[in-house]
């Protein structure tokens, strides 16, 4: 199986969201994605893996498998969880360097920009930072 690149996956997500006429449908879809997010192992839902936002909490964990990073995550808020599902789909199963090079501008394209605002305090901005930090860490490890 040939793995799609981050860019290809993000393009796919943008096209999926283009099918919806209004924000209600986009949000409903995102909530569904949130509900179907594979659950993070309960043992990682601890303070060690938590990203505390003022509004919602996010837990994120990463594992390296075959030189690719697999992310799992969760949130206590379903809309936050929906965006996590989108981010995980775009980043999980990718090599560290690709994750480091990728950006998240596709979130703007699908009309969810406000959720990645640093002032929103929902934990998502810190989650992306955490994803990148995992990529740096695993890349450094692979380089040794």
């Amino acid at each position: 199986m040939i793995m799609s690149s981050i860019q290809e996956i993000q393009q796919e997500i943008v096209e999926e969201f283009e099918m919806f006429d209004d924000w209600m449908q986009r949000y409903e879809y995102m909530i569904e994605l949130g509900k179907s997010l594979p659950l993070i192992d309960e043992k990682y839902k601890t303070d060690e893996y938590i990203i505390k936002g003022c509004q919602s909490k996010v837990w994120v964990h990463a594992d390296l498998k075959d030189d690719k990073i697999e992310f799992t995550a969760d949130s206590d808020a379903i809309i936050t969880k929906g965006i996590i599902a989108i981010l995980i789909r775009s980043f999980s199963g990718q090599p560290p360097q690709e994750i480091l090079d990728a950006d998240t501008s596709f979130i703007d394209e699908i009309g969810l920009k406000e959720h990645l605002s640093p002032t929103r305090a929902n934990g998502l901005v810190s989650m992306i930072k955490q994803i990148k930090l995992y990529a740096i860490a695993y890349q450094a490890k692979a380089g040794n």
Binding site: Q55, S56, A77, I78, I79, T80, N122
Partner: peptide
């Protein structure tokens, strides 16, 4: 069963 952040987000919309 619903997080306040989720309600606030929809209300804003």
């Amino acid at each position: 069963g619903i997080h306040p952040y989720d309600i606030g987000t929809i209300l804003d919309k």
